Lab assay of single mutants.
Amino acid sequence: ITIHVNGVTYHFDNPEEAEKFAQKMAKTYQLKMEIHNGEFHME
């Protein structure tokens, strides 16, 4: 699972971890999250 946050790329093997991380980042930084081709993009 690949997550892009403001141009920084994070890779996770565990989908649950990826989702937790994505939600935490979105909440902490008030980010808008989109999913493209199974990759999370946040800005």
Rank of each mutant, 00 (worst) to 15 (best):
F21D: 00
Q23D: 09
M42D: 05
N6M: 14
H4I: 08
M33C: 15
E39A: 07
M42P: 05
E34L: 08
P15M: 13
E16S: 09
N37A: 04
Q30C: 15
Q30L: 04
G7I: 15
Y29F: 06
E34C: 15
Q30H: 14
D13H: 09
E39R: 03
Q23N: 07
E34P: 00
I3N: 00
V8C: 15
N37D: 06
I1R: 04
E43N: 08
H11A: 06
A26Q: 06
H36L: 09
V5K: 00
N6Q: 11
E17D: 09
F12K: 00
M33I: 14
K32L: 13
N14C: 11
G38D: 03
Y29E: 15
A18G: 07
I3W: 02
E34V: 14
H41P: 02
G38R: 02
E34A: 06
K27I: 12
I35M: 05
E16P: 03
V5S: 01
M33Y: 05
K20L: 11
E19L: 13
V8Q: 08
G38C: 15
K20H: 10
H11G: 02
L31H: 12
T28D: 15
A26V: 03
N6A: 12
I1D: 01
E16T: 09
M33T: 02
E17W: 10
T2R: 12
E39D: 06
T28M: 14
E16M: 10
Q30Y: 09
G7N: 11
A18C: 13
E16Y: 08
M33L: 13
Y29S: 14
E19A: 12
I1A: 04
K32Q: 13
H36Q: 04
F40S: 05
H4K: 06
E17Q: 08
D13A: 10
T9D: 06
Y10K: 04
H11T: 07
E43R: 12
E17P: 01
N6K: 12
H11E: 07
I35G: 03
I35A: 03
E17V: 08
K20Q: 08
Y29W: 02
Q30K: 11
K24T: 06
E16Q: 07
V8F: 12
V5L: 05
Y10S: 00
N37M: 07
E19F: 13
Q30G: 13
N14Y: 06
F12P: 00
T28F: 15
I35R: 01
H11S: 05
D13I: 10
T28N: 13
T28I: 14
F40I: 14
T9Q: 12
I35T: 04
M42R: 02
N6F: 15
E39P: 03
E43P: 04
K27E: 14
K32C: 15
P15C: 15
V5M: 04
L31C: 15
T28V: 11
K27H: 05
D13M: 09
L31V: 13
E19S: 10
K27Y: 09
K24I: 13
E16G: 08
K32H: 14
D13V: 09
F40H: 05
N6I: 13
H11Y: 09
G7P: 00
Y10I: 12
V5A: 05
E17K: 09
P15Q: 07
M42F: 09
K27F: 08
F21Q: 00
H11N: 07
G7E: 06
E43S: 10
E43G: 08
L31I: 12
A22S: 04
H41D: 03
N14V: 10
K32P: 11
K32E: 15
V8M: 10
H36V: 10
E43C: 15
I3D: 00
N6E: 12
H4L: 06
K24E: 13
E19D: 10
A22T: 04
D13S: 11
D13P: 10
H11R: 08
F40W: 14
E39S: 03
I1Q: 05
N37L: 09
A18H: 00
A26D: 12
V8H: 08
F12S: 00
K20C: 15
Q23Y: 10
Q23W: 10
H4R: 07
N6T: 07
M25S: 01
I3A: 02
I3L: 04
E16K: 10
G38V: 02
H41T: 04
I35E: 05
H36A: 03
A26N: 06
F40T: 05
K32S: 13
T28C: 15
H41W: 13
H36C: 14
Y10H: 08
F21G: 00
Y10N: 01
Q23P: 00
M25I: 09
A26C: 15
H36D: 02
K20V: 09
F21K: 00
E17C: 15
F40K: 03
A26E: 13
A26G: 06
L31P: 15
F40P: 05
N14T: 07
Y10D: 00
K32G: 11
N37F: 10
H36P: 02
H4A: 04
Y29L: 13
I3P: 00
I1G: 01
P15R: 12
M33R: 00
E16L: 09
K32R: 03
M42E: 02
G38K: 04
T9W: 05
V8T: 09
N14P: 01
T9L: 10
A26Y: 13
E19N: 11
G38P: 03
G38S: 03
K24W: 15
D13G: 09
H4F: 07
E19T: 11
A22Y: 06
F12E: 00
I35N: 03
A18N: 00
H36M: 05
F21A: 01
E39W: 07
K32A: 13
T9C: 15
H11F: 10
G7T: 09
M33K: 00
E39C: 13
E43M: 14
T28A: 12
T2D: 12
K20M: 09
K24D: 11
E17Y: 06
F21E: 01
Q30W: 11
I1S: 02
H41E: 04
E17I: 09
M42I: 06
A18S: 02
Y29T: 14
M33G: 01
E17L: 10
H11L: 06
E39Y: 06
P15N: 07
K24F: 15
A18M: 04
T9Y: 05
Y29V: 14
I1P: 02
A18P: 00
F21N: 00
K32I: 14
D13R: 07
V8I: 11
H36F: 09
Q30E: 12
T28R: 14
N37P: 02
I3K: 01
G7M: 12
V5D: 01
K24P: 00
L31T: 10
E16I: 11
M42S: 04
H4D: 03
Q23M: 09
H11P: 02
F40Q: 05
I35L: 08
A22G: 01
T9E: 06
E16R: 08
M42C: 14
H11C: 15
F40G: 04
T2W: 13
I35K: 02
Q30N: 08
L31M: 07
A26F: 07
E16F: 11
Q30F: 09
I3E: 00
V8G: 05
G38E: 04
T9R: 12
E19M: 13
V5R: 01
E34D: 03
F12H: 00
M25F: 01
E17M: 07
E16C: 14
P15D: 06
H36G: 02
T2H: 13
M42V: 05
K20D: 09
H41N: 03
L31R: 01
F12D: 00
H36I: 14
A26R: 06
N14H: 06
V8N: 10
V8L: 10
F40M: 10
E43Y: 14
F40R: 03
Y29Q: 14
N37S: 04
F40A: 04
M42K: 04
A22F: 04
H4Y: 10
H36R: 12
H4S: 03
L31G: 12
N37H: 09
E34H: 13
H4M: 05
I3S: 00
E39T: 03
I35D: 03
L31E: 15
Y29R: 11
E34I: 14
E17T: 08
G7D: 11
Y10C: 14
E19G: 07
T2V: 09
H41G: 02
I3H: 01
G7L: 14
H36K: 12
M42A: 06
F40L: 12
M25C: 13
H11K: 06
E17N: 05
G38A: 03
Y10L: 11
E43A: 09
T9K: 14
F12C: 02
H4E: 04
E16H: 09
E39M: 05
F21T: 00
N37T: 03
N37K: 04
E39L: 02
Y10A: 02
T9S: 12
H4Q: 04
T9M: 12
M33P: 01
K20N: 08
H36S: 03
H41F: 13
Q23E: 12
K20T: 08
I35Q: 03
I1C: 14
E43F: 15
I1V: 07
I35F: 09
G38L: 07
V5C: 14
G7S: 09
T2E: 05
A22W: 06
M25N: 01
H4T: 06
Q23K: 08
H41L: 05
N14Q: 07
G7A: 07
F40N: 05
V5H: 02
E43Q: 09
